[in-house]
Design a protein around this nucleic acid. Structure first.
Length: 293
DNA sequence: GAGTCGTGGAA
DNA sequence: TTTCCAAGACT
């Protein structure tokens, strides 16, 4: 059963956004669709503050998809720096190639064409259609899901994956006018990022606190299935990160002993190197040397 | 559908 | 210091 959302949420949040929105490069009227697409890739699981400098350097070096497509994927991985999840760099490069090959170098404006690009899932396709092309799309990221979950359904945190009920609520709230819908989508996200945060939400600064079901219910604590805790120290992810950092920071190829030096567990290190090779993040350069692709 | 995939700042 | 997690995508 879906709780009917209150349309009275829309106007106050639009008003709040008009006053409190951050001035981010990819939000400026002069920002290209490519700038928006790059930002969405980088922002997947990565905070805005860390994305800003890398996004600026990326757009300065590769102002168009064609510019990036002309480079090796290894240069994309190198420029990605320490943003994390470097497969995103590989996918962004592949997306640039696809845009150049299949779309005449123009970032496509249709959800379906965007969704078909490497590394572009439902969220990113909807976000680019809305934010770069001002279309009316349901944009469901973790911020929007948290805001709507609280305001409409009185739950502190959303479920692990998007439910049909969430889509129904989001669609019902989405304004009919496409440009207004696009602004609404970014406004809800911004509210989630700045006010309706995961921990210590600033309800006193919320424009819809008096219409929030969660607040009205006394801000009940999360009561769902336990959310998996992500460990890092000693994991393959940390090992892969160490190995890739060596290659990122080297101008060319690197002899294997340089990789061996950064991780003690032989079996784990070999497994991680193999997985990096399988992912295409690392290539064998011959004579026992390795390099970025 | 649950697991996996990086990183570093904040509490 | 340790813990938590930030505009997801893919398998």
């Amino acid at each position: 059963m879906t709780t009917l959302p209150s349309p009275d949420l829309v106007a106050p949040i639009l008003g709040w956004y008009d006053e409190h929105a951050r001035d981010l490069p990819w939000r400026r009227p002069s920002a290209s669709a490519w700038s928006v697409l790059v930002s969405e890739f980088m922002l997947q699981q990565t905070p805005v503050s860390r994305v800003l400098p890398v996004h600026e350097a990326w757009l300065a070096r590769w102002p168009t998809p064609a510019a990036l497509a002309a480079e090796s994927s290894g240069e994309a991985v190198r420029a990605w720096g320490r943003l994390g999840y470097p497969r995103r760099a590989l996918r962004l490069h592949a997306a640039a190639v696809a845009i150049e090959t299949d779309h005449g170098g123009v970032v496509p404006d249709s959800y379906d064409a965007l969704r078909a690009l490497p590394g572009v899932g439902d969220y990113t396709a909807a976000a680019v259609a809305a934010f770069a092309y001002r279309q009316r799309r349901v944009v469901l990221d973790t911020n929007v899901r948290r805001v709507l979950g609280r305001a409409v359904s009185a739950v502190e945190f959303p479920a692990r994956s998007v439910t049909k009920a969430e889509r129904t609520v989001a669609e019902a709230l989405l304004p009919d006018d496409p440009p207004t819908a696009a602004t609404w989508s970014v406004a809800v996200m911004e509210l989630g990022a700045l006010v309706c945060t995961a921990d210590r939400p600033r309800c006193d600064a919320c424009p819809v606190v008096h219409r929030c079901a969660w607040h009205a219910a006394g801000r009940p604590a999360y009561d769902g299935p336990p959310r998996p805790v992500q460990t890092y120290a000693g994991t393959d992810r940390q090992c892969r990160g160490r190995l890739l950092a060596v290659l990122r920071d080297a101008p060319g190829s690197v002899p294997k002993p340089r990789l061996d030096a950064v991780w003690d567990d032989d079996a784990q290190r070999e497994r991680c190197l193999a997985s990096l090779l399988a992912d295409g993040l690392v290539v064998a350069a011959g004579a026992g040397r390795y390099a970025l692709p």
